[in-house]
């Protein structure tokens, strides 16, 4: 498990860095006398979308896993939650022996 987490974190960092390397190179070529306005702005855009899609992958991955794992039809999910013996489970709490 730890290895998977470490590898995925490294992969995410690499993903975040790749576009900046690539576009820094593209910038060098076009910048002559003035800064290249559209390259600057679009580079910023691609950096931001990389960040957004990285976070989005984590969030939507978590959501898909949650929906898959905690659906009531999941085999590991046959026993009622410890709050279901209450009249209203939503009024329970997270103390050790939920009452």
């Amino acid at each position: 498990m730890k290895r998977i987490i470490a590898v995925s974190i490294i992969a995410l960092i690499a993903l975040a860095l790749v576009p900046s390397i690539h576009f820094a190179h593209a910038q060098e070529k076009s910048a002559k006398q003035y800064i290249n306005l559209r390259a600057e702005v679009w580079n910023e855009f691609f950096r931001m979308t990389t960040a957004a899609f990285t976070v989005g992958a984590v969030v939507s991955g978590t959501m898909i896993w949650l929906v898959w794992r905690f659906r009531e039809s999941h085999p590991k999910n046959q026993t009622p939650t410890r709050w279901e013996k209450l009249d209203d489970p939503t009024t329970g709490n997270y103390e050790k022996e939920g009452h």
Binding site: P80, T81, W83, T90
Partner: peptide, 9 residues
Amino acid sequence: IPRFSRKPL
């Protein structure tokens, strides 16, 4: 969400 998760918030 808590109601259909059968769980407190």
